[in-house]
Amino acid sequence: MYSVVIAENLRKYFPVEKSFIERIFSKGNIYVKAVDGISFRVRKGEVFGLVGESGSGKTTTGLMITGLIKPTSGSIMFNGVNIANLHPKDLQQLRKKIQMVFQDPTASLNPRMKIGDAIEEPLKIHRIGSPKERREMIIEALQKVGLNPSFIDRFPHELSGGQRQRVVIARAIILRPELIVADEPVAMVDVSVRAQILDLLLNLKNEYGLTYVFITHDLSAASYICDRIAVMYLGKIVELASTDELFSNPMHPYTKALISAVPVPDPRLQREKFIPAGEIPSPINPPEGCRFHTRCPYVVRSCKINEPALEEVSPGHFAACPVLPFSR
């Protein structure tokens, strides 16, 4: 199957600002290891989920895929082009093909810009169409996301949160991209409106043959929209599988914990919970060996020394845990 994105050994370290005294006494730099050596492929036409808690590196990964930040090392191939060392000019051309939808639609829209102008912006930047053609394209995009063409002359503050997110999605699809990276697109939308937005994303995907990277902390939303899911913990992918496989047969103890922790909206379906103690450690000094070992109930001595590799445990199902047989 054709892969739109191929990430190999991707790393992103952010340097930590040091105080004057630290600069004198300590050697070397301190880094936040936001993403620390991950590899994955996003197949054409799928919804690929990046799931994890805050600090897992999922958003940083999304930003690297869109070329908004440069990886420290590793490569990201998009249709055979390495985004990681692309000239800014070429990168801008590439942005026609890769678009992003962020969590907060209010912050994504300029409050002084009319909706029509906001959606037109990418067309202007890429010099597409005459003003009249552009207007037609904007109206079509508005209709595609379920908004009335009259919205073209409104301002963001006149819209509800759900409508604003639809505008942001309209702006993302107007260039007919191949790939959309959606970072928590429904986290700030009203509960009763979330399902509408998820379905809108799925419909647009089918209509335009889009591929999505869907970033979320919400496993319920991920289970609904994603075809495959990569679970991230402290900058690493700990498990990767198809959605059905991941939820029915989670292998990594962290994935198991995450799935068991999700509150299920049905009292007849309650299960036993498995909640590890403690919290996600600092990405500045991640634990040696397996990064989850400090919280893992199945920990053995080797977990503290050797960093487990992501291995294929069954066809298409990858997990990074050498003590899997015990945790089953």
Binding site: S160, G162, Q163, D190, V191, S192, V193, R194, A195, Q196, L198, D199, L219, S220, A221, S223, Y224, F247, I259, V262, V264, P265, D266, L269, R271
Partner: peptide, 27 residues
């Protein structure tokens, strides 16, 4: 009907439905 809509629009991975029945419009 609102409670019903809320419940049916919440994704639940333990039920295997592939279609959410959502509430149209906004509050």
């Amino acid at each position: 009907p609102y409670t019903n809509g809320l419940l049916r629009s919440a994704p639940n991975f333990l039920r295997k439905e592939r279609k959410l029945a959502y509430i149209p419009g906004e509050p």
